[in-house]
Design a protein around this nucleic acid. Structure first.
Lengths: 259, 259
DNA sequence: GCAAAAGTGTTTACCATACACCCATGG
DNA sequence: CCATGGGTGTATGGTAAACACTTTTGC
């Protein structure tokens, strides 16, 4: 829980610390057991949910800002963030009377119409994917909950955040066709069923096990080890690991993965 | 030529009309006779060149702003603009002493350090492609020239504009693999050699004529007409036109064009 | 021995690629 | 008739896609 005075400080003094008119929204996807989730925050004393967002410090890089925002929410700082689109409809961040009342309740004071949090805001969208059990969600100063939601049952979000989420998912799925994914998302040694499940979950569709494995192996992205994982009452699958060299090259140069 | 007082108005009063800290840079590619060009502006009383840029009005959409900026430079308003990346290094728009002197020369007055044009600026990048003979280049208030440059001989540009240009070209070439291009770039009826040349020029490489035509036809993107164009001393090529239905569907859903 | 999951190989069909010769036109 | 550019078809190879049976493991 964030201390009350930190919240008030943020509302009252943030205008000196952050760039006006600009924000960053991070769509953090969490992968876990064949489910794709997204990290959402609930506003204090309101039942509105939002993406993990924040502002850019006066002398801060965009990607640094996005990294900092996600770190504040999750504790993680080794996340592969991807800028995907900037959202700037003049009305996108329009605040209702209820939102202003809400801020006034928190600060126990009056909030002027030209308050920095009420200005038109252009938001730069970033997305990232993480193994969600690694994350320790922390609310931000304006929120009292920070939780994972299943991608298919996300509620109505504030502003245009449902749209931003949809665009992020589109961008992520598009990216998967040109760059590998999985490093930092899977354990160092993983099984074919594990990486197969990861791809199926992100793409939201079934992929033929045999063809899938054949492709990753023939591209040289993963290498079979001489070890197996014991998974209880079933045949023990072999372990694989990424060929970091080829993986990084594929990240940089792009590949064609026609799943 | 822009009247002198318009320039001074822009410098002195722009802060009331535009969002601070934000700008738009447009990379306008011009296609003409197997050459790819880009529209650049030269700053007044300086030999620095830049991309076509501008600011966002207080109540204006991002894409409207980009369209307006390009229209001001080119007279065109039916351009297919594509947002591709947002650039926000804190130092990217750093102004040198010479730049400040330059503004002071134009306004014939002193420019305070916190002047709106000197603030840190995050720039939203858009690119577009046009047939360059349709364009009537007009300088902006800070520039005295607006000209096409060949993509391979672009000079050193201000700020990070060379980088923005390189990223725009990468994004354009990537997009060509997923979306068709040519509508509004070619005449309504065009020949196979014409569209073939367009693709070769944009991609910067040779494409087999026969395979190229086969692909566009088999995807149904273009349809052969029962007319030919007379091109002088050679065999008259057939005319084709886009199947707008399929073209738009391909724009929307994406296709795979592995050239 | 049975249920559940993992491992593996072959065939097919399509498509990308490479490649060369003939035709039309105006001068 | 010649120079220039346009039009067209085929053969090949690679690979994505479809598909099913066997093996392992713990209970």
């Amino acid at each position: 829980m964030i201390p009350e005075n930190e919240t008030i400080d943020f509302i009252e003094k943030g205008h000196k610390e952050f760039l006006h008119h600009l924000s960053i929204d991070c769509v953090l996807f969490g992968y876990h057991e064949h489910q794709l989730k997204v990290l959402l925050l609930k506003w204090k004393e309101s039942d509105k949910w939002s993406l993990a967002g924040g502002f850019i410090k006066l002398e801060e890089n965009l990607s640094e800002a996005a990294t900092r925002i996600l770190k504040e929410r999750t504790g993680l700082d080794e996340i592969f963030l991807q800028q995907f689109q900037t959202f700037g409809e003049p009305k996108r961040s329009h605040r209702s009377k209820a939102d202003i009342d809400h801020l006034e309740t928190i600060t126990k004071g009056s909030v002027p119409a030209d308050h920095w949090l009420l200005k038109r805001t252009v938001s730069i969208g970033y997305y990232a994917v993480t193994e969600y059990s690694k994350v320790n969600p922390h609310p931000d100063p304006l929120s009292d909950k920070c939780e994972w939601w299943e991608i298919d049952s996300v509620p109505k979000l504030i502003f245009d955040h449902n749209f931003i989420l949809a665009e992020a998912l589109k961008a992520l799925r598009m990216q998967i066709y040109h760059q590998p994914i999985g490093y930092n998302l899977l354990p160092e040694k993983f099984t074919l069923p594990e990486i197969h499940d990861l791809y199926e979950t992100i793409l939201g569709k079934e992929l033929d096990r045999r063809n899938f494995a054949k492709k990753l192996i023939s591209l040289g992205l993963i290498k079979k080890l001489n070890e197996r994982r014991s998974i209880g009452a079933h045949r023990s699958p072999f372990l694989y690991k990424f060929d970091k060299r080829k993986y990084d090259k594929a990240l940089k140069d792009g590949i064609i993965l026609a799943f």
